[in-house]
C-alpha cells in the first residue's frame, strides 16, 4: 500500500512535559488506522502533528511526499481545508448555523457556490442518515445526530484523510457504534484514510490496524516497537 501520510521521529513537549518523544507512524491511502493509548499518552498531540495543526519540535511529517513540517501556516491551512477532514469529540459545529449549513461550510470555504454546496451537503446528510436535522441548529439535535453531522462535514469536501479524535467519546455505545459504522463505511466508499484516535478498543476495532502510543512513542503491537 502506498504510504499517504508518514511521520518520522516526532518530538513535542509542552513546557517540561514531553508529549511525543520520537513517534513514528505511517498511514496508507484509504487505510483506517486506530491510534490507541491511555489518556495523556500523546495520542491527540500525534493527531495534531499529523494533521499539521501543531508543529512538532523535531521530526518530519510528509503528506504525499510533501513535508508538512516545512510548509507555511497558510499552506498547511489550505491542505487541511482541501485534503483533510476532521471529527472531534464535541463542540465542533457552529451553533448559529443549521446542520445543513454546517456540512456545507467546508465547501463554501473552498468557494463552492451556496446552492451547489448545500446540494452536496444534503447528499451527505442522507448518507449519514440525518436528513431530518438539516434545518435544525446543532443545539437542537441529539449527540449522536450531531456527531453524524460532523462526520458528514468532515467528508463533504472529499478529503484524502479523516482525522477523528475520540469521535464517539461523548456518545453512548449504541450511538457510538452507529457513528463509527457510518464513518468507516463512508470513508471506505470515498477511499479516504482515517486516523482514529480513541482509547476504546471497541471503537478501534473498526479500523484496519491499531497502533498504541505509549510514553510518547508509537508501538506497533504485532512485534517490536517502532521508532
Amino acid at each position: 500500500m502506498a504510504k499517504l501520510l508518514v511521520a518520522d521521529g516526532l518530538r513535542k513537549a509542552f513546557g517540561q512535559t514531553p508529549a511525543l518523544d520520537g513517534a513514528s507512524i505511517s498511514v496508507g491511502a484509504g487505510e483506517i488506522v486506530a491510534v490507541m493509548g491511555p489518556s495523556g499518552s500523546g495520542k491527540s498531540t500525534l493527531l495534531h502533528c499529523l494533521a499539521g495543526i501543531t508543529q512538532p519540535d523535531a521530526g518530519k511529517v510528509r503528506y504525499e511526499g510533501r513535508k508538512l513540517t516545512e510548509m507555511t501556516d497558510r499552506e498547511r491551512s489550505a491542505l487541511r481545508r482541501g485534503k483533510f477532514g476532521f471529527v472531534f469529540q464535541f463542540g465542533q459545529l457552529v451553533p448559529e448555523l443549521t446542520c445543513l449549513e454546517n456540512v456545507a461550510l467546508p465547501l463554501r470555504m473552498d468557494r463552492v457556490r451556496r446552492r451547489e454546496a448545500e446540494r452536496r451537503a444534503t447528499e451527505w446528510l442522507e448518507r449519514l442518515e440525518v436528513t431530518d436535522v438539516a434545518g435544525k441548529r446543532p443545539g437542537e439535535v441529539s449527540g449522536g445526530q450531531g456527531q453524524r453531522v460532523a462526520v458528514a462535514r468532515a467528508l463533504v469536501a472529499n478529503p484524502r484523510v479523516i482525522f477523528a479524535d475520540e469521535p464517539t467519546g461523548a456518545l453512548d455505545s449504541l450511538n457510538g457504534e452507529r457513528v463509527m459504522r457510518l464513518l468507516t463505511q463512508s470513508a471506505r466508499e470515498s477511499h479516504a484514510a482515517v486516523v482514529l484516535v480513541t482509547h476504546e478498543a471497541r471503537v478501534a476495532s473498526y479500523s484496519d490496524r491499531e497502533v498504541v502510543v505509549r510514553d510518547g512513542r508509537v508501538r506497533d503491537l504485532t512485534g517490536a516497537s517502532r521508532g
Binding site: 495534531h48 494533521a51 495543526i53 491551512s77 489550505a78 491542505l79 487541511r80 481545508r81 482541501g82 483533510f84 476532521f86 472531534f88 463542540g91 465542533q92 457552529v94 451553533p95 467546508p106 470555504m109
Partner: peptide, 16 residues
C-alpha cells in the same frame, strides 16, 4: 475558544 480552534484546525482561513 474551542469552536474557533476547531474551525482553524479544519483549515478555516483566519481572515474568514
Amino acid at each position: 475558544r474551542r469552536l474557533l480552534a476547531i474551525l482553524v484546525a479544519m483549515g478555516t482561513r483566519r481572515g474568514t
